[in-house]
Design a protein around this nucleic acid. Sequence first.
RNA 1: GCUCAAGUGGCGGAAUUGGUAGACGCGCUGGAUUCAAAAUCCAGUUCUUCGGAGUGCGGGUUCGAUUCCCGCCUUGAGUACCA
Length: 999
Amino acid sequence: MQYHFNDIEKKWQDYWAKHQTFKAENHSDKPKYYVLDMFPYPSGAGLHVGHPLGYIASDIYARYKRHKGFNVLHPQGYDSFGLPAEQYAIQTGQHPAVTTEDNIKTYRRQLDQIGFSFDWSREVRTSDPSYYKWTQWIFIQLFESWYNNDTNKAEHVETLISKFASEGNANVNAVCDDQIESFSALEWNNFSSEKQQEILLKYRLTYLAETEVNWCPALGTVLANDEIVNGVSERGGHPVVRKKMTQWSMRISAYAERLLQGLDTLDWTESLKESQRNWIGKSVGASVTFKLKNHDEVIDVFTTRPDTIFGVSFMTLAPEHELVSKITTPEQKTEVEAYIEATAKRSERDRMADVKTISGAFTGAYAEHPFTKEPIPIWIGDYVLAGYGTGAVMSVPCGDQRDYDFAKHFNIAIPNIFEGVDISEEAYGSKDNVIIANSDFLNGLNYKKASKLAIYELEKLGQGVGKTNYRLRDAVFSRQRYWGEPFPVYYVKGMPQMIHAKHLPITLPEVEKYLPTETGEPPLGNAIVWAWNTESNSVVSNDKINHTSIYPLELNTMPGWAGSSQYFNRYMDPHNDTEIFSQEAVNYWKQVDLYIGGSEHATGHLLYARFWQKFMFDKGLVPVDEFAKKLINQGMILGTSAFLNRLSIQVSYKGVGPSGYALEKIKRIDFPNYFISESWFKTPMARMSLNLKMREDFYQKILKKEDLKYLDEEIYLIGFFNENRIHVDVNLVDSSDELNIEKFKNHSLYREYKNSYFIFDNFKKFTVARDVEKMSKSKYNVVNPDAICEQYGADSLRLYEMFLGPLEQAKPWNTAGITGVHGFLKKFWKLYIGDNGLNITDTKPTADNLKTLHKTIKKVEEDIENFSFNTTVSTFMIACNELTAQKCTSRGILEPLLVLLSPYAPHIAEELWNQLGHNDSISTATFPKFDPSHLVESSKEYPISFNGKTKFTMELPLDLSKEAIEKAVMSHEKTIAQLEGRTPKKVIIVPGKIVNIVG
RNA sequence: GCUCAAGUGGCGGAAUUGGUAGACGCGCUGGAUUCAAAAUCCAGUUCUUCGGAGUGCGGGUUCGAUUCCCGCCUUGAGUACCA
């Protein structure tokens, strides 16, 4: 009986679906384990072989945990709001919901055919109103919360309001807007309702504020920092500009310290934690206030080096700093204004690209040194960023290279305040090994002590305080898009009001077109039925907006990360209509035990989701404040792109110039119509045979450009190039890299090359060049898992993806290699089923059989625990080879072996399990227990090495004493031959390991 | 620039605590089977001047280093005038 994988796989996939084999219950006697994948965005292109890698790994782990007796939650869903469906809607008019539904169908079919053990009864879709109802609900909770620094957690705004009413805001220690006026209880109580709302908005965890945002005109929307790559949009590569807009923001900065500290408790990769640490960007230092000469205003700066305060020789403000216009002297006005104009013109991208150029202007104004009271000139320069700190720095050229360069460039003094340090060439930027000098009361102190004392003295003057700064900015939460969650928000007199949670969800309105309105409003501005009636508590038509109790609804929608910040909790109780999830469910599942996904979410999704989790923890909604205990980033599977080399050659030739002189020239000529076989370059061929047509082209090219007359035999080919190559679809190339020229010429993509010429190698072959790149449609190197499943089966695909290499590493895909694992499965099948049916007997296993089995159990278990899935596949192959050689038919061996294989190749395992006479699914069978007694050896093949180099091996009993081993080794003929009569200096014997003779 | 990760045959990779470097697979070579092909099976496959050499390069520790330490080079990823 043959291994008919297509039939077997279909049969068991249907069985699992019908019997709901992988449905997880929210209560069990077993311990719980939650395995989660980052859910996919269902794109129109479907899955390629790179996508399932992480899913296969998590599926193996989930199945393994079931064998180990855990109640496993392994859900899947779709992150189904997003830009591509909306772009498609703009182009075709098809509703994004329809596009999304189609794409999900394709995804589901592709996922099903790989045999994942997902509990599909818990599927969530972020674009489903029954799901985004709860995304909207969390938004309302955030709006109704503020961050209390005294209790170090989020609290309901009611507690804030009662504080204001009883004592004003003087003693409120909140994370809030920097520019907040102080008021007494009396003043608060006398404020108008609008005024009170305005003030509260500055404290809420989600708030409306005028922010400078990254505006992408081509997409008509705001982008988050992590949606911008090298100054252009991640999607589409469109230019991005800075623009001020009123936007919803999330006060993630309130959680900066907790997000940082929380990392230490997580079993995530160090590199990922490091990215988050960099993103949060904590720096400890001081805020210092400089008084101005002849002005009442002051300049606040943030510095990490208060110890260098006596090294300040100038101050630099960002050109956008609000004080610039106020303090600039009339004499400097022209220069400063010209500079501001010039920097405003330079885009963010230019400024980034051009770090080297030093520019700036003197304002003519002076600040006063807090201790020496000396005047300090105030400059502006674009190396100071308006968005970080206060947009102003105290410049210490001896201790900061940028200040140093600026000072050198503009001839500003560079006082040295470091003892015994040479600053004639560059600044001394290190905090270590410095002793402060020329600094009054700081002299002789190191960085730590001097900083502390400087802050103490500044505090006494009322001109400074120790401060910690974070780079983490509040997250902009509004998008000018259609296909996203609507806000549960309407506006009364311009102030945002939350719709009561009991009226959720506020579903997306229908619009006629998905573009921004003519007046530049977001696409929801096109909706006709999009106003809120506070009497009927329902969405009504816009045309009644001027009536009482009918108000405009928010036109923005939420960003992509909204839905993905709560899905992992919702899976615990996905159909709950009255709560986001029951306390019973969340207290049972608690948090994700294993989370697998791509590293591209390091500073986006993974940071925002942690923020929401901490907020929910503060609100008492979840029992733990980190949502994922362990996280693994799967590496990318790369594509092997194929390229056609376009011919370019370098020739030297002799000719006769216009005036009759002989000339020798070297010239490079491109032949865009000629393709040359890659194998040609590997052939050690010195000359190139130009065919007639080429020769003609060749002459024409040169003759046209240079008026020369040539002698045929004096043209020499001295070099060629294979740059200028074009991508060719990998499906037109066979496994030996040979191009199917016929197919290529008839392919619609390559119509323009229909009449091109092909230069073959000596063996009449035409091969393509290969290179490893990211797998993507635009590179024509995409391999579809459907084709692999059809030809080799899902079990082969699963095994091969794991076999390629370590899970976390990037690795190239090569379809040819799949025959290895496919061959293994066929051999494995034959171990159980021969030509005459089942091979299984009840014979007692031999010692060799048991040794193979238990060696395999041990290795497989260790490998899975260490996520070393690639080596497990090797282990299976070794076991299969050994048992085949041993002609093992014993049920006692082959039955437990099936359980070991089952997480990796579940279909074949189920089928053989069934053929062995089991009626239940193998998925709940107990994992075999390792028994070390079968691996005990009585002798060891000792490597005998001389000066550390192994020369031969020797079989010796393991219970031999050191002396006996030495005796046996030294009398061995090969030892004597190796020593050639010399006496060894030393003999190292490690029993059970090695013998090393040092001579 | 900074941070992190990684450099091992023709290729993907293995060696989990310092102890026989190259497991397993692909590819390649030869053979068996076949009218032939596919499939399958068997043998070989780091290099070598056959002494040896060899895990990016140069040092070090050790009886012994892919593994530990110091210095460098290269590649990939992230991040960037962050005061």
